[in-house]
Design a protein around this nucleic acid. Structure first.
Lengths: 128, 128
DNA sequence: AATAAAATTAGAATAATTCTAAAAAAGTTT
DNA sequence: AAACTTTTTTAGAATTATTCTAATTTTATT
């Protein structure tokens, strides 16, 4: 664990957002001037590889990074807002991974559930 | 519907894979020499916008496109292979979208479930 | 047939991410 | 602690998936 890596790990874990590499970089520079974007990418990749953070595959050209505590994500198809959801946890009393493994016959190690919605804010606005 | 758009629509619907834009393009050129990559992108985007095909957000830098018939996806974390799965359908007797809407209190319009596994083939091989 | 609107083409532009090589830092062995 | 090895960081170039622009062609409409 270098200083840079633990800084990046800390930024992901203290954030309540779903930061992109660029957003992590901007926060990192504040706390360690001189750190470089490639270092942020290197460490994000290493942290993902080692299972300390996760990479989200959302409908956005940028990758987003998140804590490992399992939860789902809600994305508004109109404004693009991303926020947490807790749905899959509640669906299977033996745990989602166990149930999905049984149903599929595959050795499932993790999962990603993205719920596409029209968020409350966008519902309020008229369509154009 | 132009000739190009219906060609691209047909390619997606006849394929059992999860094609990238580049792969769609290669198949399109075979059947309509002279078609151009930008046209493929334009039409893929238009078809997604109009709900005739869907765009998958998988752990791959390329976007993948698929038919609209709802199902889940399995991705092998070791070799990257992508294949279909049918798990979410079986979890809620009132339908996954209805159940997720109730549980989350949001107006959910669709969802994407990606199951990360170690596929049978990779299980067979020793780790390096 | 003439006109208007939309789609295609060709190629340049954009931008997220990765790569390369050199320098610095961290870890290890004596 | 010095010497050595390995890993990481840095700086900037390279890559590449996707989008954009402007001109042309096709399609739809009057």
């Amino acid at each position: 664990m270098t200083r840079q890596k633990s800084l990046i790990y800390d930024i992901i874990n203290k954030s309540s957002d779903h930061l992109t590499a660029e957003e992590v970089y901007r926060q990192a520079v504040d706390r360690m001037p001189g750190i470089v974007l490639a270092t942020v990418y290197n460490n994000l990749n290493a942290l993902v590889r080692d299972g300390l953070i996760i990479k989200l595959n959302l409908p956005d050209k940028n990758a987003h990074y998140d804590k490992t505590i399992p939860h789902d994500h809600m994305v508004c198809d109109r404004c693009g807002k991303i926020f947490d959801a807790f749905v899959s946890d509640k669906l299977c009393k033996d745990g989602f991974i166990n149930t999905a493994s049984s149903l599929s016959g595959q050795d499932i190690v993790s999962y990603e559930l993205t719920l596409h919605c029209i968020c409350k804010e966008c519902q309020g606005k008229a369509l154009n």
